[in-house]
C-alpha cells in the first residue's frame, strides 16, 4: 500500500508498505531512517519512540496506514526541532553507553521537558518508565534530564 507522510519536515512517500507493517518498518526499512531502533516489537522498551503529529508514540505499535498523512519527527529530526540541549545533556551527563535505547530516551525526555520544563525525579521516572536501558542503571539519564532542564547548572 502507498503511504505518504512528512518525516522531519520532508514529504516522503512509500509505495510498497505492507498492510500489517508498522510505522517503525516504514521509517527503518523503507525510508532508511535507522536512528529509530527496534528492540522489542511490543511497546515495552521505547527504543522506537517518535513524535506522530506531535504526540509521543511507540512507532512499532502504529500501523503504516495509520501514519498516512501524518507528520513524524524522529531522532534524526530532533535537532531541527530544538532538541539539541537534550541531546547534548545526554552526552555530557554520561547517559549514553551502548546507545541503543538513547534515541527513544532522547525523544521521551524532549517530550517531558516540553510539558514540564522543571521536572522532579519522580516526574522523570514516570515519564521515562517506558524506555528500557540495560547499560546505565538510569541514574545518569535522570541527571541528563535535569541538566537539559537547566543547562546552566551542571548536576
Amino acid at each position: 500500500m502507498k503511504v505518504s507522510l512528512t518525516v522531519n519536515g520532508a514529504r516522503r512517500t512509500v509505495d510498497d508498505a505492507g498492510e500489517s507493517e508498522t510505522l517503525l518498518q516504514v521509517l527503518r526499512d523503507h525510508l532508511g531512517l535507522t536512528g529509530t531502533k527496534n528492540a522489542c516489537e511490543q511497546g515495552e522498551c521505547g527504543s522506537c519512540t517518535v513524535y506522530l503529529d506531535g504526540t509521543l508514540v511507540c512507532s512499532c505499535l502504529v500501523l503504516a496506514g495509520q501514519a498516512d498523512g501524518a507528520e513524524v519527527t524522529t531522532v534524526e529530526g530532533l535537532s531541527a526541532a530544538g532538541a539539541a540541549a537534550v541531546q547534548e545533556a545526554f552526552v555530557e551527563a554520561g547517559a549514553v553507553q551502548c546507545g541503543f535505547c538513547t534515541p527513544g530516551l532522547v525523544m521521551a525526555a524532549h517530550d517531558l521537558l516540553a510539558h514540564n520544563p522543571d521536572p522532579g525525579d519522580d516526574d522523570i521516572r514516570e515519564a521515562l518508565a517506558g524506555n528500557l536501558c540495560r547499560c546505565t542503571g538510569y541514574q545518569k539519564i535522570v541527571d541528563a534530564v535535569h541538566r537539559a532542564a537547566s543547562p546552566t547548572t551542571t548536576p
Binding site: G43, L56, G130
Partner: peptide, 9 residues
C-alpha cells in the same frame, strides 16, 4: 497502563 507513548495511543 504501560508508558506515556502507550497511554497516548
Amino acid at each position: 497502563v504501560g508508558s506515556p507513548p502507550i497511554r497516548n495511543r
